[in-house]
């Protein structure tokens, strides 16, 4: 469904993302993990059209989306959320979600119904008339999810929807994401916290210093010495091997 090959991004002399290849198949939940500053969000920004790739190809549903504007990519069915939540602060929750729902209809009644339905899916039904600027962190994360979901995407790009949440809230949002997948939406998500994606994703890619260092099922990736090093620092892998 999504195919990224040889994608590279440089900022000045710094290579933020270096020749990354990855793919997401229809119906999967795929995660991209890595420590802070690994280039995850930059990669996402390129996939969603917010940044231009310096090199490489991105295709979505066999269509090359290099050089497309974010709204065009969104219209194709690949919709992103933001790590730093970007609510329409002056609007209510309902109005926020309706903006997403308008993606497929110009009828405000249809958009309203769709928004209410989506709000129910993500558990925001009781907050519909609440101003978005008054939402809690968890509320804002859900709102990001809801707005994107209201566009009826084929593929959702979720940028750290769990960051900043407490364990209960994480459990809740994991359940929401699973239920979204159950409706046939493919999900590609970025997480900083490894544990959170372990029981959620079918496959995982690990990015470190702009390069992919591992991929596979979460459990194999978690045992990969390179991954452990990336997360825990130099020498950690040997230490762990020595221990066991």
């Amino acid at each position: 469904m999504l195919n990224v090959s040889g994608v590279t991004k440089r900022f000045g002399g710094l290579t933020a993302v270096s020749s990354v290849d990855l793919n997401v198949q229809e119906g999967e939940i795929v995660s991209l993990i890595g420590p802070n500053g690994a280039g995850k969000t930059t990669l996402f920004a390129m996939v969603a059209g917010f940044l231009k790739c310096d090199e490489g190809q991105v295709t979505f549903d066999q269509v090359s989306i290099n050089g497309m504007k974010p709204h065009q990519i969104s219209k194709l069915g690949m919709v992103r959320t933001f790590q730093i939540t970007q609510p329409f602060a002056g609007l209510t929750t309902l109005e926020n979600i309706m903006v997403g729902a308008y993606s497929n209809t110009s009828d405000s009644e249809v958009a309203r119904e769709k928004a209410e339905k989506v709000a129910e899916t993500v558990g925001m039904k009781s907050l519909l008339s609440q101003g978005a600027d008054g939402l809690t962190v968890a509320g804002r994360k859900r709102l990001e999810l809801a707005r994107a979901l209201a566009t009826d995407p084929k593929l959702l790009l979720l940028d750290e929807v769990m960051a900043g949440l407490n364990p209960t809230e994480i459990d809740e949002i994991v359940a929401v994401i699973k239920s979204i997948r159950a409706t046939g939406v493919t999900i590609f998500l970025i997480e900083h916290v490894m544990k959170a994606v372990m029981n959620l994703s079918d496959r995982t890619y690990v990015l470190n210093d702009g390069k992919l260092i591992a991929s596979g099922t979460p459990s194999t990736v978690a045992e990969d010495p390179q991954v452990i090093e990336a997360y825990l620092g130099h020498g950690a892998a040997e230490a762990m091997v020595a221990k066991s």
Binding site: A48, F50, K69, P70, H71, Q72, S74, K75, V79, R80, T81, F82, Q86, P87, F88, A89, G90, L91, E95, M98, V99, G100, Y102, S103, T105, S106, D107, S108, A111, R147, A148, T151
Partner: peptide, 22 residues
């Protein structure tokens, strides 16, 4: 819809773009 899209642009242009608004 057009009005809602304008307001979305006012409130947050990046988010509007991400939701498919030209």
């Amino acid at each position: 819809r057009f009005g809602a899209q304008l307001v979305a642009i006012r409130e947050n242009e990046d988010a509007a773009e991400a939701l498919g608004i030209n």
